[in-house]
Design a protein around this nucleic acid. Structure first.
Lengths: 341, 341
DNA sequence: GACTTTTTGATTTACGTACATCAAATTCTG
DNA sequence: CAGAATTTGATGTACGTAAATCAAAAAGTC
């Protein structure tokens, strides 16, 4: 049987009440006594039974997810996963709220975060827009005792407790190597379709992609990046144009969302040429394109894992506990048509 | 506030004791009353507070992991992950025991499982050896109320509650496509190095690999499978031989363990030729080989995830609860040198 | 209708922790 | 050293469930 508060009391030669005061950092304990109790805790290896404690406290974890208002499939999926988590709130002692803010809008994010500094939830998860103001508010929130986790896109240099998302530089590098190897030494042009260079995750993917391309596949020539704002129609127009005006293009890397448009453009030119295409985020449309051969590989981050991980980490942090790092690492999924879930 | 047993009692117009009798399927309740209580439970949407219940019961989950005695890195890793879980036992209310049985030995497995049928643990996880006797005992165990989860290698057709491992046919297919695409239309021979065709996971990987190879890469010629018993020295000998006697080999798929030997053989011939190599399981040696370019891709299953998933599922099953299917799906990790963890 | 048997109710204790209250003991202050 | 302030102890209640006991009520039997 693992030791309980009673065992600490006995070991330290004090009463249960005193142990409680020490454990819950209440006032009214002399420094010497406090030391003695803490020593006893360490010695007998007491670990608080979080379940019992939560029961006694009637604790729930009020968590806030700040998500961008965005109509691409990935963000829809993310929203949906948070909603799934809300359904499980009853059994998980969470009380989850979603706050929507306009995408690519640091000011709105800051305003929302400042509001949260008042509310003092048990934890905050946000899709970070990469701006110094945001970093500053996040730091303030964390300093005031509210654990913050970044989701999908990180906020490097901030004091956020955890990042529940993939390593986007690694993702870009992986995409480059896959594309390069799939093209097997051929020479030609490569087009990159991004959402916006204003968001960190897209910038990082491009960075990684460019690194490996220039280092290891000199026969492939990177064209200037197309920015499709994660919008299907814009993506369609950009890719159609590019393919129409340049017949040296042999590969495409779509590192953002809005792949419906990309796929539409590719299908329109299907008979004319063979392209090697790598895209991000597994959605209904990319899955279809992967199956029928329009796309060769899809890199994915599992939104469900990200959300569940964020929740686990925030709960742990709220209790001042650690977490299993390996479990919370969000992996880059690589899907070919053969290993689709 | 979520409803409690008191709310059920009030709603059904019975006493707390009766509710308890119904909830814990104790005798002494008339059929009509039982129905009424069950109706009330459904109506107010009562969900048992597992944490409180476990606290009251002082419940621990005695779990048994049956693992093969095997000295390859992957199995070592698996052992280690179970040991990590044992360390967490205190906080997770588990009481985990490891039983080692000889590898590739259905009889030993059966004997162990029969012993467990007596002990009645809360759950059993095993690396299944694929034999009808094993299937029969597993079915009996499950029928007697002990949830069983297969680990790494499945037992198709059995009534095991869950399989915590990857889809090995998909893994083989993925390996074939990666190899085929990386070779970019070249013609030549492909060597497959397996552990043993007696274990299901290896058979399945080969099956998937062969499917895609023959369907989609006709210019690549599959040589007959080499069986290295997951042993480094044997693998070294087999691969050295093969490369020495056949200079048409341009690709290798190592679908089992014992890759240390493979890598040694490859490095010995490094200057002579370029091979495209795909291996399974990320270990220290495959990681090194991936980094230095000896291996082109590693397919991996995360042993830590498998163990944690098995535990979560067994606990849930022991309580008669469901689990989040998406969370428990073990994914096939594809590692290139760029996305190593 | 008296009897047995079964079903139900009322009540209590327990799990490990949190938290509050009040009294007793100790320390500090002047 | 008295008096005030602080520290500590003793005790009880609560959280939601499990499990046990014993009495009371209802149902079934002859």
């Amino acid at each position: 049987m693992r030791p309980t508060v009673h065992d600490i009391a006995a070991a330290a030669g004090v009463s249960l009440a005193t142990v409680d005061r020490v454990l819950n950092q209440r006032a009214g304990v002399r420094e010497v006594t406090r030391k003695r109790v803490e020593e006893a805790i360490r010695e007998i290896g007491y670990i608080r039974d979080v379940a019992a404690a939560n029961l006694a406290k009637g604790r729930v974890y009020p968590l806030v997810f700040i998500l961008p208002t965005s109509d691409n499939s990935f963000m829809h999926g993310l929203h949906n996963e948070v909603r799934q988590a809300m359904i499980r709130s009853g059994t998980e002692r969470t009380d989850i709220h979603i706050r929507e803010v306009p995408a690519f809008d640091p000011q709105a994010l800051v305003a929302e975060l400042e509001r949260l500094a008042e509310e003092k939830p048990a934890g905050v998860a946000l899709v970070a827009a990469d701006a110094p103001e945001v970093l500053a508010v996040v730091d303030r929130l964390v300093a005031s005792g509210v654990p913050v986790v970044t989701l999908v896109s990180d906020l490097t240099g901030s004091s956020r407790c955890h990042y529940a998302g993939v390593d986007n530089i690694a993702a870009g590098r992986t995409a480059a190597r896959l594309l390069g190897r799939f093209l097997g030494g051929k020479a030609g042009d490569i087009t990159v379709l991004a959402g916006s260079m204003m968001v960190r995750d897209h910038r990082e993917r491009l960075e990684g992609f460019t690194q490996v391309m220039s280092e290891e596949f000199p026969s492939l020539n990177l064209l200037s990046v197309l920015e499709g704002r994660d919008d299907p129609d814009m993506a369609y127009a950009l890719i159609s144009d590019a393919l129409g005006s340049n017949d040296r293009i042999i590969g495409i890397y779509s590192l953002g969302a809005g792949n419906r448009g990309l796929i539409r453009a590719l299908k329109a030119r299907h008979q004319e040429r063979t392209l090697t295409v790598i895209a991000h985020e597994l959605t209904e449309s990319t899955r279809g394109a992967l199956t029928d051969g329009t796309i060769d590989a899809v890199l994915n981050q599992d939104a469900g894992h990200e959300v569940r991980s964020a929740i686990r980490v925030l709960k742990a942090k709220a209790d001042g506990l650690g977490f299993i790092a390996a479990q919370e690492r969000i992996r880059l999924d690589i899907f070919l048509k053969d290993n689709l879930p």
